[in-house]
């Protein structure tokens, strides 16, 4: 159990997030991280709360907390958010 104490609550992302997938009625719309970060904060909040967003690294889904941290550190945005 001692080892578990040293494990982070969420694994760090080794590969970059390359795609944000937004669920639509008949499929998904994909966007790169910069485009996602440029969306209004409220819009992003609502999409995540509605469970319509998948953060992808080479096609693999990344959990929400490490994904958002990675995006905050690496992806650009706009001044309006």
């Amino acid at each position: 159990m001692a080892a578990a104490e040293f494990e982070p609550a969420q694994p760090e992302i080794s590969a970059p997030i390359d795609t944000i997938a937004i669920k639509m009625p008949a499929g998904y719309n994909m966007m790169p991280p910069d485009e996602w970060q440029a969306l209004h904060e409220e819009q992003r909040f609502n999409l995540i709360k509605a469970k319509r967003v998948a953060f992808l690294s080479a096609g693999v889904s990344i959990p929400v907390r490490p994904a958002l941290r990675w995006l905050a550190d690496h992806a650009g945005g706009n001044d309006e958010k």
Partner: peptide, 22 residues
């Protein structure tokens, strides 16, 4: 049915989510 592997927003409280998005 199209399987969705969306980020699980239940992992986060609203306040923490807003903080991460801001």
């Amino acid at each position: 049915e199209d399987p969705i592997h969306a980020a699980d927003a239940d992992e986060l409280a609203d306040d923490e989510l807003r903080e991460l998005l801001s």
